[in-house]
Simulated assay, not measured.
Amino acid sequence: MNGMDWRRMVIALAAGLGGAAVAQLLGLAAAALIGSALAVTIVALLGLKPDIPNPLRNVAFCVISVSLGSGVTPDILAEISHWPLSILLLAVTVLVVMIVCGLILRLMFGADATTAALATSPGALSYTLALAADRNADLRFVMLLQSLRLFLITVLLPPMIGFANGGVGAGPAADVPHLHIGEVAVLLAVTYGLGMILTRLRFPAPYILAGLAVSGIAHATGIVAGRPADMVLFFGFSVTGAVIGARFTGFTLSEIKRLALAGFVSTAVAVAVSVAGAFAASGLLDLPFGQVWVSYAPGGVEGMTTMALALGYDPVYVATHHVFRILFLIGILPVMVGLFAAVGRKSGKT
């Protein structure tokens, strides 16, 4: 890592931890995640180029995923029996989001068919950008709209859930014990190692899956019981928020102003569709609406599972749905891009 990289990392960490601390003092829901994302986004738009290096990012994801694994209980098998229908409804929701938002971007904002399809993909960002480069889509349009969607959902979802719950937001369970520092160190080390292996095997969200497996098995078998200390979680939330905010590095204010309306409109429609899907699943399966909404929200798997943990929802349920969404998108995105392109050719647009 060169000197400039160190400077950018220090800027990102200073802004992220500072913003997280302020949000925590203000008593916001998912405070560390939201505060860090906001602060680092501001710093990025000021041109200071914050950056979180991949090893540090992966450590933070390990902290989050080890904490997610503490949600594994002996009742997990009975709970999983409700999930197939919930996952099916999620798949339908994803398809509706892509079709409706893609049409909006094409008809209202003049995006070409391929760019519209990829800009509305609710997740799988790395894969989406690879497809965008391969299919000659407008890469900056796709990246900026994806970043705006993730930022808006990360910042606005917790207060919206609190409003939907009558002003009462969920909170992390207070009765979960803390792991000893040695237990945390071993779990994180094993998770990081497995995450590296899964990365080489091209698994989606490898460090989240690794932590769920390692920590989940350790909790299910009674080897450990509890989650990392609050300060460790604060670090994980803050760095994850900084990763979200740092995505705005390299964009100018004029670019953001030009595409902001497209980002706001497409995100609002995507959220509305996810609300409808979550409402249906919640009613059919008798599950907490907020928990299903976080699971259906078109955000990144790391950000949404972090939010589930911060809000006190079943982390295994949420993580399972977001990992499925990534796998579903990997399979369906090329098909959707082809369909959009075919429709565009028939209508005289590309």
Rank of each mutant, 00 (worst) to 15 (best):
F234E: 11
L233I: 10
L139K: 04
V100P: 01
P298W: 12
D51A: 12
V301D: 07
F340L: 01
S238D: 06
A31C: 06
L188S: 06
N54C: 08
A278F: 07
K349T: 11
P177W: 11
E255T: 11
R106Q: 11
G71I: 04
A308P: 07
H321T: 09
R57F: 00
L148Q: 08
A20E: 11
S238W: 05
L125H: 07
N2F: 04
G216W: 02
T306D: 07
L198C: 07
I52W: 02
A278I: 12
H219S: 01
S81R: 15
G338C: 05
P122M: 00
T154F: 01
P158V: 00
A276K: 08
F248L: 06
S215A: 09
A189L: 11
V292C: 12
L309Q: 11
R345S: 10
T306N: 06
S65N: 01
M196Q: 14
V275P: 05
L118I: 07
P315N: 08
V275H: 09
P122Y: 00
G69Q: 03
A133Y: 14
V72H: 01
A276M: 13
A268H: 06
S126L: 09
T41Y: 05
T252D: 02
V243A: 02
L89I: 11
L233P: 04
T128A: 08
F289T: 13
S81K: 09
F248R: 03
A44V: 08
L33Y: 04
I223S: 07
G169D: 13
V323W: 04
A14F: 13
M196S: 10
S274Q: 09
K346M: 14
G300L: 03
V323E: 04
L125A: 10
A341S: 15
L26M: 10
P50C: 09
M304G: 06
V22A: 10
G166H: 03
A137F: 00
G277V: 12
A117R: 00
L17K: 07
P74A: 10
A308N: 08
L48Q: 15
L77R: 07
I208H: 03
V66A: 02
P74E: 09
G299Q: 03
G19F: 12
A229C: 15
S36H: 14
P53V: 01
A60M: 00
L85M: 11
T320C: 15
I326H: 04
F151W: 03
L198Y: 08
S36L: 12
V224P: 13
L148W: 07
A268C: 06
N58P: 00
K346V: 14
I244D: 05
T240G: 14
Y192H: 01
V301A: 14
T199K: 14
S65A: 05
Y207K: 00
D230E: 13
S65F: 00
Y296R: 05
G290Q: 13
G47N: 12
S70G: 09
I64P: 03
A37I: 02
A23W: 02
I197R: 08
P228K: 08
F251Y: 05
F279Y: 13
A30P: 08
P84R: 02
G167V: 05
L25A: 15
R7T: 13
I256N: 05
S65T: 01
Q146F: 10
A44W: 06
T115N: 09
G245S: 06
L48D: 13
L284Y: 07
V269C: 02
L194S: 10
G195V: 01
S295W: 11
A130V: 12
N136M: 11
I197N: 07
A218P: 04
F251W: 03
A133K: 15
M98H: 02
